[in-house]
């Protein structure tokens, strides 16, 4: 037990890194994903096509590859090439990748709302933007809560990928201690930390689902 308390310090520091990546990604990727989805369902063919291509690229290649590319290869790309420090490089990769997944969730949510809602809005005089903001998107939120819950839980666990950029997230911190002390105890504690984080997320989404349950479709 004393040992657990002793390793708690470095593991909590790792958790802080994990949570930072998680929260920053979430805060940036959700609005970006929504924006992409709105372009994707818009009547602008070319823009919509570009977004489809982007989503295909981001979902079709491993997140780890994207992260390595942004960190190691991006500096050598002409024109847009920049050298990013490890943390920003990881954030950029996570945001670009998760925005694509969120965009697909938003898109299917938007397209699941019937045409009657658009027509009713239209005959009442609402513009397309007003219809989206006031009528469609509020209904989409309720519909996408379950897949969003899934995706954010995946995100929490995916943050462990940043070890490839030598950043000390929760898992890498645990592994460091395992290698130093020749005991698997840190893995058990790290696992418990992940479980606590996903539990909090699950509860949060259940709470939201309950709040949205006041109305049925």
């Amino acid at each position: 037990m004393n040992y657990v308390i002793e390793i708690l310090g470095p593991l909590l520091e790792g958790t802080a890194v994990t949570l930072q990546v998680f929260l920053i990604t979430l805060v940036l990727a959700v609005p970006l994903g929504l924006g992409l989805a709105l372009i994707r369902v818009s009547p602008f063919r070319i823009a919509s096509g570009i977004v489809s291509g982007y989503i295909w690229l981001m979902r079709g290649t491993p997140l780890m590859l994207q992260m390595l590319f942004i960190y190691f290869a991006l500096p050598f790309v002409p024109v847009i090439g920049v050298r990013l420090p490890d943390f920003p490089a990881a954030i950029v990769a996570f945001v670009l990748n998760y925005a694509a997944y969120f965009a697909e969730i938003f898109r299917s949510g938007i397209q699941s709302v019937g045409k009657g809602q658009y027509e009713a809005s239209r005959v009442l005089g609402l513009s397309y933007g007003q219809t989206m903001r006031r009528i469609i998107l509020p209904q989409v939120v309720k519909r996408i809560l379950p897949p969003m819950s899934n995706e954010t839980i995946t995100l929490i666990k995916d943050t462990s990928l940043i070890y490839v950029l030598a950043m000390n997230d929760l898992l890498r911190a645990a592994r460091g201690i395992v290698q130093r002390d020749f005991t698997t105890m840190p893995f058990v504690v790290a696992g418990a930390f992940y479980l606590i984080m996903t539990l909090v997320l699950t509860w949060g989404f259940l709470y939201l689902e309950k709040r949205y349950a006041v109305y049925d479709e």
Partner: peptide
């Protein structure tokens, strides 16, 4: 021109009152 549809097309996420006041306020 106001319109009433066969399938009602009420806004399910809004209460009856909110359904009615939405357009006068927003539009």
């Amino acid at each position: 021109m106001g319109m009433v549809f066969q399938q009602f097309n009420l806004f399910p996420h809004l209460t009856v009152l909110q359904n009615i006041i939405e357009a006068p306020i927003t539009v």
